[in-house]
Simulated scan of single mutants.
Amino acid sequence: MPGAARDLRGASWVGTRWRVRGRTFAHVLDILDGTPPAFAQAAGTDGPAHILIFRSSGIELDALSTRHGFFAPGWGPQIIGLVLDETVDRVELGELITDSYCNRAPQKLIALLDLPE
C-alpha cells in the first residue's frame, strides 16, 4: 500500500524540513497549544512559538546550548533547537543553517559553497 506509507510518513513530520542527500539539516515548525508534544516539551513552551531544529558541533554547540532561546532537545549529540522570535539575529541564523548543511553534506557539495574564511 504505497499510499498508506506516504500518509504515515507525512503524519510523523510537521513543519518544513530541508535535506541534503536524504539527511535533514534544518527543520522549522510551529508549536501551538503544546502540539506537537515532543517539540513543545523539548523547547519548554506550549506556544505559540516557531522553532528551528538544526545541527551543530564542537565548541559552537556547547556555546549555543547555554544561550537564551536555544535548547538541546536530547535527540542526538549534535541536535540543537532555537525559538525563532524577533530577537534572532538573521545573519547568525544564516550562518547556523549553513553550518548545519555542512555538517550533513558530502565534501564535494560543501566545496561548491562560497564560504567565508
Rank of each mutant, 00 (worst) to 15 (best):
D89W: 01
V88N: 03
A4Q: 15
K108W: 12
L61R: 09
E117I: 07
F54T: 03
H27L: 10
R17K: 09
G22T: 04
I31Q: 15
I80L: 09
H68V: 05
P73Q: 12
G58I: 02
A5L: 15
D114F: 08
D46W: 06
G15K: 06
S57I: 01
W13C: 04
W18T: 04
A4H: 12
R55C: 04
A11P: 06
G69T: 02
A72P: 02
Q41A: 11
A26S: 10
Q41I: 08
M1H: 12
V88F: 01
P77T: 06
V83R: 07
V20E: 09
K108S: 11
A72C: 05
S57K: 05
M1R: 12
G34W: 08
H27F: 08
L112R: 14
E117Y: 08
F71I: 00
L112Y: 04
P2M: 13
S100Y: 07
I51D: 00
P106E: 05
T45R: 06
D89Q: 09
T45P: 12
G34C: 14
D89E: 06
R6Y: 07
F39Y: 11
A38C: 03
D89M: 13
A42G: 11
G3L: 11
E117N: 04
E92Y: 10
G47A: 04
R9Y: 09
A42I: 00
G76V: 02
L32E: 13
I53L: 14
F25G: 03
I79G: 00
